[in-house]
Structure formats: C-alpha cells, structure tokens
Simulated assay, not measured.
Amino acid sequence: MELPLVVGVDGSEPSLRAVDWATEEAALHGVPLRLVYASLWERYEGPALAPGLGGSAEQVRADDIVHAAARRARRRDTDVKISTEVLPEEPVVALLREGRNASALVLGSRGRGGMAELLLGSVALAAAARADCPVIVLRDDHDVRAVTGRGRRVVLGVGAEPRESAVVRFAFQEARQRRVPLEAVRTWRRPAHGSPGHPLLTGDPAHSQERAASQTLDAALRDTAADHPGVQLHRRTAEGSARQVLLDASATADLLVVGAERRHGHTGLQLGRVTHAVLHHSRCPVAVVPHQA
C-alpha cells in the first residue's frame, strides 16, 4: 500500500502554501495526499451546536478548512488522490500518529526574523523532533514549487552520525524524482591550536581534518550512490560551521535534507542546534529525516 504524504492544515496561509508544495510532491512520487486538521475544540466548546449547522461551530470551521484545502490541492493537480481528516485532539499528538503511516509529514511555518521567529512554528519543531517519518517544513518565504524550483538541486548535509543511510537514501530519492543533481556536504573545522613541532614532521592539522571529513562523506554516500547511478552527485567538504555552510547552500537549493539530530533535553526529545537553525533560517524547504526512517 502506498503511504500518503500527510499535510497539517489549519487555514493559515503558511499551511495552504504547504498544501501547494505537497500536492506537487505527491504527484512527483505518485502517492496519495492526506490533509489533516487537529484541534482540541471539544475540550473547550463541549457538545454545543452551531445554529442550523448540525455540529459545533469549531467542527464546522474545521470541516470548511480541510475542504477548502482539498479544493486548492485539486486545482493544482487533478490526478492526485486526496483524503481529509478532522481530529479533535492536540495537533502534535495527531500528526505524530499520522506520521507512523506516512511517507512524510509536510508542515507550514511562518518565517519571521528576530526573537518572534523562535516562538513560532512550535508544532513543526515538535513534529520534526519526534516523528517516525521525514518531516518537511516550509516557511512562508519559500518557493512552493516542488518540481521546478529556483535551485534545481537537492542539498544533503552529512553529519557525524554513523547511521546516516536513511537520510542519504531520502536525499537520493528526492534528487532522482526531481531529475536534479544532489550536492552532499560535510563540514570541518580548523583546529583552534595547531600541533607543536615542525609541520613536515607532524602534518598539517587542517589537512587532517579535511581528509577526515572527506572520508566520512565517502563512507556515508558509497552504498546509496551505487544504488542510484542515474543521480548526478557532487561531493563537497567545506570549512566552517555546519549551520552557516548549509544555510548558504540553501539559497540555491530546492530542498535541504538533514538528519534528525535528536537529543534528550529537560522537556523530552529536542532538535540539535544545526537542525534547529536550518529549520528557522533556511531559504528553501527543509526535510528532517530520522535515522531509522
């Protein structure tokens, strides 16, 4: 059975832009599109009915939201199979459950600068930190063309995690479906303090770090690259912070793919600093892929 692409909708412009992008993505991969609205309205409204409408005012509003999103998706592509669901529960809980039987979750988030941005997109951040499937986040300043975007390439950030295969496989599949090159990037940092002694005897520490980055990159890509001979692959090692290198690359990419980079914090599973940064500041959609996907 084909796993659907699930989109969280709430009637906002960012979520509708996510519907646009996800419709093209579903058509690209030949999978169904599932539009989900979740809210705890029953907890606050109770069973009160909206006059003449046969349901609570919030239930009616929720139905209107998913139906409007479905009409929008059908206008974008008439061949994509579309289903809708309205769930009376907390959005993150509902989306995480939907993600267990999804090819990916697609979520919209507002893109704003400064401190306000850090307070927005809590649902997207929580889903990216905990979902069992890839989570793709679009901000409202991202290109909503999944197929013919501005960059014409997919960028993959290769981390230090030894279990990168699911992340790499997802990136190759996206590049293959779009028929665009894949650029795989591994960053390295120059040591703060060089090794004592003569460089001819001790070797250049920077060169050693760059060589290690190249070896990590080759090891992460080797098996999956062999399985996708039709994908044009560009390997790149770059000196600098992973955050800045990936953000710079996102300016000319259609999609940025990173590993989930999850860690435990005082509030449970949280995203690592690099993943968190690219979700907030990337200039293209970001796919956060769990290592076991």
Rank of each mutant, 00 (worst) to 15 (best):
P4Y: 11
V6W: 05
V9N: 08
S15W: 04
A18Y: 14
T23M: 07
E25Y: 03
L35Q: 06
R43L: 14
Y44Q: 12
E45P: 05
P47H: 04
L49C: 01
G54M: 09
G55P: 00
A57W: 04
Q59N: 02
R61L: 13
A62G: 10
D64Y: 03
D64N: 13
A68Q: 11
A69E: 05
A73Q: 10
A73W: 05
R74L: 15
D77V: 01
D79W: 15
K81W: 02
K81F: 05
K81H: 10
S83E: 11
P91G: 06
L95Q: 13
E98V: 13
G99W: 09
R100V: 08
A102F: 05
A102G: 10
R110P: 04
G113Q: 08
M115N: 08
L120V: 13
A124V: 02
A131L: 11
D132A: 13
R139L: 05
D143L: 08
A146E: 04
T148H: 15
G151M: 11
V158L: 01
E161N: 14
P162W: 15
P162D: 13
V168G: 00
R178G: 06
V185A: 00
R186P: 00
W188L: 01
R189A: 11
G194C: 00
G194K: 08
H198S: 15
H207M: 11
H207Y: 03
L221Q: 00
R222V: 01
D227V: 03
H228K: 02
R235K: 12
R236E: 01
A238Y: 00
L247I: 15
A251E: 13
L255N: 05
L256R: 03
V257R: 01
E261T: 07
H266K: 11
H276M: 10
L279P: 00
H280W: 10
H281M: 09
S282W: 05
V286W: 06
V289D: 08
